[in-house]
Every structure is written in C-alpha cells, then in structure tokens.
C-alpha cells in the first residue's frame, strides 16, 4: 500500500500521572494509519486504551494525562505541533467526533439547531440564515422527518437514537475528512443501533470520509469495519483486515475475546472465558501485558514484551507464539 494515509499515528504515548508517583501508561507506543475513506475499528475492553487513543488524536487529554511522545500526522501535518488555537480550527472541521452518550455531549440549554449552527459558523464564513438552512438540511440527511421543528427543540426532548442522529448531523456539518466514533451505538437498543450504524456507513460513502470506530462489540466490527486493531493494556496486540481477525485469529487475547462471546449462530454449552481481569495501567506485568491471563504463556513472555510483528502480509501480531 503506497497510498498516502489520511492519518498516521506513530509511537503515540499518553500517560497519566497519578498520586504517589504512579504512572498509568494508558496508551503506550501505538502506531497505526487510516486511509482516506476507510473504516478502521479499534476494539478492546475497558482499560485497553482505545478511547484515550482517540482523545489523543483530538488532543482532548486533560491533566493529569499528557501525550508524552509520538507524532499524529493528518495529511502531512503533525497535529502535536499545533497550538491550541490551530487545533480548535481542526476539531469539528477536519476531524469530528461523536460520543457514546449523546446526552452528555450535547449542551442541554441550547436547541439542537443552535448547536449545529454554532459548529458551522465557527468553521465556515456564512450568515446565520445560511447556517440555519444548512442545519435543517443536515437534520434531514440524518433522517429527521420534521427537521424544521427539530432545530428548535432541546436535547431532552429527543430519544436516545434521535440525539445520536443530531450528534452525527453536527459532526458531519463541516464535511470532516475523519470522523471518530467512540462507541456510537453502545447506549442504544439493537434496532436503533442498526439504524445509527447504517446511517454512519451511508454518510461515509456520501462524504467520502474515513471513520475511526472505537468499540467493544466484535459484531459491530465485523459488519462495519474494513480493518481492525485489537488493543490490550495500552498497546496494539493484533492488526489486520476484518475477515482475517475472525477467520484467521492469531493473538491469544483476540481468540479469548471471540470465545467469550455468546453467539446467535452456534450453541455453546460453556463460554470460553479469559481468566482474571485487565491489569491496571500503572502495574502491567513485566513481560507481555497479557501474560497474566494467557493460556499459552511461556517463560520468555514473562521476561520481555514482544514486538508487533507482521507475521503474514497485512497481519501484525504482538505475541511470541509467532516468532
């Protein structure tokens, strides 16, 4: 693949400096890229660092957290070199983000229309009236039948699925090149989840934008992503095309994750649970971070952490079983 990626993240480290001199290595050396128009999914459980990775791209990391190393390149410009002012021009315009809980992301005291117009007027030189027309159009695009009325309504007047649609309208208002969707459908019921994810897929096609999809749901990954990164303990443990992750699973953690999923297709007497819990980010095991839970743990796993190696073409794994 010689195509220039849209976003290129290299050696990203985001640490949190806790009390009593502990350091939580929430994101610890993450490299990945997203091509234009591609959907890249990051899967992982709580504490894997998937959300901190996405917040680092947006530079929405607050104290005691800090991006301590790495580069984040969007179309050949390093975002980590930008000033706060420059970044706020990029956020919402080039990169937009939607969150899991739209109620906390929307401002409860402003109308939906107000909030969409604010984004448009911040980034585009348009009159209030034009912005309003654009807001109505956007709401129609994301599937509101009575968009003219919705712009005057407040977030609490909408259902969860509707709020998520409004957030998507806001996020795509400036036609971003990259949309970061952090668990966009997790708080929604399955029938609504399908509506929202299909809407995102449709918007991606229409606007030719790339999506970074953060999720814990492997079913969502299978249906909506092109490529997938599996994160564990602040690092990528497996990276490959979406078919490969399910058909040719390599890392023991990914295998464990798939085995613990109850399935609609298969009947299983018992679920193959992964023993133990995710270690806290300030006290990872010395060697491989999964070693304390891994069924295939070997001596060398306890001594040093394996590198992320390409073991087949376009399939990278961080595990000593493969080298």
């Amino acid at each position: 693949m010689t195509q220039n990626p849209l976003l290129d993240v290299e050696g990203l480290k985001t640490y949190f400096y806790l009390e009593d001199n502990q350091v939580a290595k929430a994101v610890d050396g993450v490299d990945f890229y997203i091509n234009p128009g591609e959907t890249l999914a990051i899967v992982g459980e709580s504490g894997s660092g998937k959300s901190i990775t996405s917040l680092s791209i947006m530079q929405l990391i607050n104290k005691p957290g800090k991006i301590i190393d790495g580069t984040i390149t969007l179309e050949e410009e390093n975002l980590l070199k930008k000033t706060g002012k420059q970044m706020s021009k990029i956020r919402g315009n080039d990169i937009a983000m939607i969150f899991q809980e739209p109620m906390t992301a929307l401002n409860p005291v402003y109308t939906i229309g107000n909030q969409i117009m604010e984004t448009i007027r911040k980034h585009k030189n348009v009159s209030k009236k034009e912005a309003q027309e654009r807001a109505i159009e956007l709401l129609r695009v994301v599937g509101f039948p009575r968009a003219e009325e919705i712009i005057n309504e407040y977030p609490h007047q909408l259902s969860g699925g509707m709020r998520q649609r409004a957030m998507i309208a806001m996020a795509i208002s400036c036609e971003p090149k990259l949309l970061i969707a952090d668990e966009p459908s997790t708080a929604l019921d399955v029938t609504i989840q399908a509506q929202i994810l299909d809407l995102l897929a449709e918007m991606k096609e229409r606007l030719d934008m790339a999506i970074l999809l953060i999720t814990h749901d492997l079913g969502v990954v299978a249906e909506y992503a092109d490529r997938v990164l599996v994160m564990y303990g602040g690092q990528i443990v497996e990276e490959t095309a979406v078919e490969q992750i399910f058909e040719n699973t390599k890392h023991p953690y990914t295998t464990g994750l798939l085995d613990s999923l109850p399935s609609l297709e298969k009947d299983m007497k018992r679920l193959g649970a992964i023993k133990g819990t995710v270690p806290p980010a300030h006290s990872f095991p010395k060697g491989c971070r999964f070693s304390s839970r891994c069924p295939h743990v070997m001596e060398r796993c306890l001594e040093s952490n394996p590198d992320l190696n390409e073991v087949e073409s376009n399939h990278k794994v961080r595990c000593y079983l493969y080298n």
């Binding site: 989840q193 399908a194 749901d217 079913g219 969502v220 399910f246 999923l261 609609l264 297709e265």
Partner: peptide, 9 residues
C-alpha cells in the same frame, strides 16, 4: 434477531 451485528463474516 436480524439487527444483532454478527461476527460471522
């Protein structure tokens, strides 16, 4: 049932 995202690719 048809809305549940499936891992069967």
């Amino acid at each position: 049932l048809s809305s549940v995202p499936s891992t069967d690719v």
